[in-house]
Amino acid sequence: MKRYLLFVLRIAVAVSLVLNTGCWSSNEIEDLSVYVGLALDVAQESKFEQGIEKQGASYPKHNMLTATVQIVPPVTGKGQKQGGTSSEQATTYINEKLTGDSLIQIFRQFALRRDRPLIGHHLKVIVVSSELAKRYSLEQIFDFVLRDNDIRPSCLVLVSHRNAFESLSTSEPGEIPAIYLAGLVKNRYRSNKIIPPVSLIKLDSRMQSGSSFLLQNVITSENEHKFSGAGIFKGSTKKWIGELNEFDLEGLSWFSFDVIGGAVKTYAHEGYTITYEPKRSNSKIIPKVQGDDISFHIKVSSEGSLMEDWSFPEIPSSEEYMRELEKLFEKQVNKQIQQVLYKMQHVYRVDVGGFNEQLRIKYPKVWNRVKEDWDETFSSIPITYEVDMNITDFGSSND
């Protein structure tokens, strides 16, 4: 019996040795250039490119866009990057850019200046400048990116208010801008100025649907970055046509996204600051059809805390006073909704609030009749709204 068990054990060990062999086609990470960020801008040749072209190092192309890749150098020793000088050893990333008219050709050109090929398996974020997206459709700009098997479809897509390459730079020691930007979307539970993240696969889906959509906008100043508003992309052209500011996004979030954080600030009659923090919210976009007439009604309800009141040193117990504050907060949210609806219908004439989806679900026949020119139809549709705010507590303070 013991001999039999020993024989079985030997066979099991032999099989495990065969199954646990390494991948014959693997590439060591030290032999690759792993890029985590990609910025796409209107063509602007670097001094390096201008210099080498004067020496005849060029190929037939039109300068249409500039691609900046953010590479994380492999670590070979404690606190050192492979091949780095003493000044380079403290660098946590390297930004390199090339210009051309074909993104895949640009990527292949990097093989002429880097001894390690680019690998996009860990790409975290793609930032496209609004100026580039104004000139060319996102279908053109992202055609190669959507075809490339190296790039994961979960990659975050953002739009930059100015040059996209600026968003991949920082003066913060040890920080990698691409990873920093990808992490900002996790703060949605703290702010209703952040839209649900748009990944590469979601972007492709929205472009295929033909509907207008938003991309989170990132702005840069002094090598520091901030999410601020959202870029608007026309469904028929897939081009950037304008943007919503932070105040607009707050209004849009009340009826288009789940408000799971943030703050509503307004002022009491005496001019003192009062602030409400939503804890729970619910919204409905209700389509109504009568003959050929289409209209929408928005219902928003929220429960939350009175988190700041500069008009009273202590927590008030008056029910009448609390109802008065609720009306003030409702007025503020109404103002936010009114402003964003005005911009959607009369400034940009696009539906980026999901009204089309609600009409499609409830009245599919009507939707099939109007979907071809929906943005234009939407711009003249009557929309009413009502807001109900309910203060349920005063934070951690007691009466």
Rank of each mutant, 00 (worst) to 15 (best):
R152I: 08
K78A: 06
A67S: 14
K327F: 06
E222Y: 11
I71S: 07
G174V: 10
E224P: 00
P173S: 08
S129I: 02
G251Q: 09
T266W: 08
Q80V: 12
A133S: 13
V128F: 00
S191F: 10
K239E: 15
D393S: 10
S318H: 03
V333P: 00
Y136C: 00
L17K: 01
Y342L: 11
I260L: 09
L252K: 11
I106S: 01
T91M: 07
R114S: 09
L215M: 00
A14P: 00
W310I: 09
G251H: 05
V333D: 03
S317M: 12
V333A: 03
Q332L: 05
V370S: 02
E53Q: 13
V72S: 01
I201R: 11
L244M: 06
G22M: 05
D150C: 02
K331Q: 14
S236M: 05
L328V: 07
S25F: 10
Q290V: 08
Y385L: 02
V127K: 03
F257W: 15
N149R: 15
L341C: 06
G51K: 08
Y59S: 08
D204S: 15
S137Y: 05
Y385C: 02
K299I: 10
L184T: 05
Q82A: 12
G395N: 03
I94D: 05
S169A: 09
K124I: 01
G242R: 08
K265N: 07
S396A: 11
L306A: 02
I315Y: 06
Q89G: 01
E372Q: 15
K299C: 05
L244T: 02
P287S: 05
K362G: 04
T66Y: 10
Y385H: 12
V347P: 02
A263S: 08
K234H: 14
M344H: 04
I119G: 01
K54I: 08
S33L: 09
I241Q: 10
G353D: 08
